[in-house]
Design a protein around this nucleic acid. Structure first.
Lengths: 233, 233
DNA sequence: TAGAATAATTGGTAGGACAAATTAAGCAGA
DNA sequence: TCTGCTTAATTTGTCCTACCAATTATTCTA
């Protein structure tokens, strides 16, 4: 009989709390190896099963990575987890296109504002190049790649990985939808022109390091997309 | 010997994929009960251990909820998961105050912009009341509550749960830090005055449904906080 | 000494056994 | 027939043992 099994709460929750506190205290840093599952189980007075359930959770959330035969290691690959969350949130009907677009607008506006202060000549050069290519690119697939690269570049120039992570997570989720929508928009000369203009406007504003103007153009860019969304779907 | 054990990938990953696809296909909706663990194990040809590891992961990510004796049910409580992610991301040193502040600024600016179009009279009334109370409130704890309520109210008025979820997740994580910082700032008459002014500025802009001005005041608000951050810490 | 074979370590999986909580079924009394 | 309690069945929570699979450390051999 277990005399003190009912310490409090579920066993695997205790394990998760323990490991998280270890990381918090600094006893476990990124890349470091965790104790073997069997040792953790004995040390915490729980079964290996509970330890594994906890580790599996932490693993899928991106906090640790497991390699059979080697061990469990502290990592921080949070992006996949965020992408999963966003995806499921949309699939379960807890959100819709409008909400996603508004969130993206907030993040991308902030990104372009930060980028206007921090973008370097090399990035500016590439940005200009992309806008130039986008103007003459007729192939849908390649223009989609260029478009993604443009937004990605702005995120990079913003110098905030945190914002980037969320944007990428959202992007991964709705990429199929976005690319399909891009295809529809590119068929329409008016929309295409508007997209090109807003892209160029953003690039120019960044060249001038004019944050307010860059934000204004970014919001105009989203306005175009949102209008097309209502119009085409 | 297992003839077909090596179907592909880890067993628990197969289980996760299966359940997620069931939800995606619509065969499993919110609130519905999942098959018992033993049945799932038999149906998928894996051990109950693997099923449990998968369920535990989905549980902590907020996709399902488990009740001993009853069963596992589909849910969509994504907020806890986001909060965990944000928290661990900060703890693992993958981000810092500046990044968090910039993200918050982007989200809150977007929120206040949306709120300026959607806020209703009742919310405006409460907002005015909060700003009024904040001006005369000397007790740190109560002023902290009021401050949180103010930002929460703006998020509500914005009408975008998605943005709210992320803001709340961040708020939960850094609340201790924030409140401590607030305490320091409130001791300084200059900072206190600046906070009050920016709060009032936001409220006035929202009353006028002036989005641009609201965003401007929100950014000024963050400017004050960021300056204090550099100054006091 | 270098390379290969071997052993030890460690995560991955399966299955059994029992406890604890919930739910369903059955039963007694009015 | 209906109500309320007791009992049984169901289901998650936990631990254990055993074994496979992959990696790493060790030893042996040429």
């Amino acid at each position: 009989m277990k005399e003190e099994n009912t310490q409090q709460g579920k066993a695997y929750e205790r394990v998760i709390t323990y490991i998280k506190s270890e990381i918090l205290k600094g006893d476990l840093k990124r890349g470091e190896k965790l104790p073997p599952e069997r040792e953790l189980a004995e040390r915490l007075g729980v079964g290996r099963n509970s330890v594994r359930e906890a580790l599996r959770t932490l693993s899928l959330m991106g906090f640790i990575s497991s390699t059979q035969g080697a061990g469990n290691f502290v990592s921080c690959d949070i992006e996949k987890n965020l992408a999963e969350s966003v995806q499921m949130m949309m699939l379960l009907g807890a959100t819709d296109y409008r909400q996603v677009s508004e969130l993206r607008q907030g993040l991308e506006s902030q990104a372009v504002l930060l980028a206007s202060e921090r973008i370097n000549p090399a990035q500016l050069s590439e940005l200009e190049d992309i806008v130039w290519q986008l103007r003459d690119e007729d192939d849908l697939e390649r223009s989609t790649i260029l478009d993604k690269r443009l937004h990605y570049l702005i995120g990079e120039a913003a110098g905030n990985p945190f914002i980037m992570v969320i944007l990428r997570a959202m992007s991964e989720t709705i990429d199929d939808f976005i690319s399909h929508m891009r295809g529809q928009m590119m068929k329409d000369e008016v929309y295409r022109k508007q997209l090109q203009d807003s892209h160029q406007g953003i690039a120019l504003a960044l060249q001038d390091h004019n944050g307010a103007e860059a934000v204004r153009m970014m919001r105009e860019h989203f306005q175009v997309v949102d209008n097309a969304m209502v119009d085409l779907f």
